[in-house]
Design a protein around this nucleic acid. Sequence first.
DNA 1: CGCTCATATTCGCCAAGGCGAATATAACAC
DNA 2: GTGTTATATTCGCCTTGGCGAATATGAGCG
Lengths: 135, 135
Amino acid sequence: MGKTGKAFDMERLFKALADRTRLRLLNLIGGDEVCVCFFVEVLGESQPKISRHLAYLRRAGVVAARREGKWMHYRISVPADAHAARLFAEVRAWLAEDGEMRRDRERLVKVCCAVSPPVQLQGAPRPASIATARG
Amino acid sequence: MGKTGKAFDMERLFKALADRTRLRLLNLIGGDEVCVCFFVEVLGESQPKISRHLAYLRRAGVVAARREGKWMHYRISVPADAHAARLFAEVRAWLAEDGEMRRDRERLVKVCCAVSPPVQLQGAPRPASIATARG
DNA sequence: CGCTCATATTCGCCAAGGCGAATATAACAC
DNA sequence: GTGTTATATTCGCCTTGGCGAATATGAGCG
């Protein structure tokens, strides 16, 4: 593999990672599949801003989206290229230790498990792993 | 370490990596210390362009410079942060397999070992590891 | 001092991309 | 069809940063 040209465009990947909002999004997605409305709620950013950055990540090939009725779920799209994949894993391990990123994840869990979630999230499909962990 | 704030600015690092010329520079430096004139010769880009990108890398903290008379030598500045360092290693391993990067390194070796190098490089200090390997 | 060489910086110009505000689309309910 | 909800896109505006061209700095030589 990868003899014909770029297995994965390095420059494009790094451009995708070169923005704090996008890093926060990748961090929130984690190994799961997360609905857009949670990003908006947890990051406290405007919905168009979130959508724009998700579109950028999608164009860069690092996330994939799945529609479920009105909701869009985003998940990490692990690069096929082995080096890209390992690098990506390093990035996520790094994110896991950053202070703000940690707080973001905590807020996501809190919002998902809330007995009475914010109005905007009533009926929103929760990330699988968190919903499960709720018990 | 790293409890007070950012151990190493991730965003800044990725911005530094998000340019092909800068990736080519990092690749050429490798584990060595390389004089600016070689970058200009090997990459075939203008000297101001090379200098500007080196300055960018320096500001991002990923390379360091040392003056030796008229010449400036650049080397990789491995980040103190463990995650950043491992990520950096991944990047360099990835670079090592890219086609253009490989050709760049071959050109560097060729230029360094040439019996009669280009006029601009007469007397230029060669990268240590290559000069040594020349035998 | 002036001259030359190696490198760095500045100056316009232009494209990429970040932002908020507004608008468009897509799916569902009625 | 209308209306509502979730998400996406477009539109100006502004900043970042890439480029070539020109200029500045810094070190050595005579």
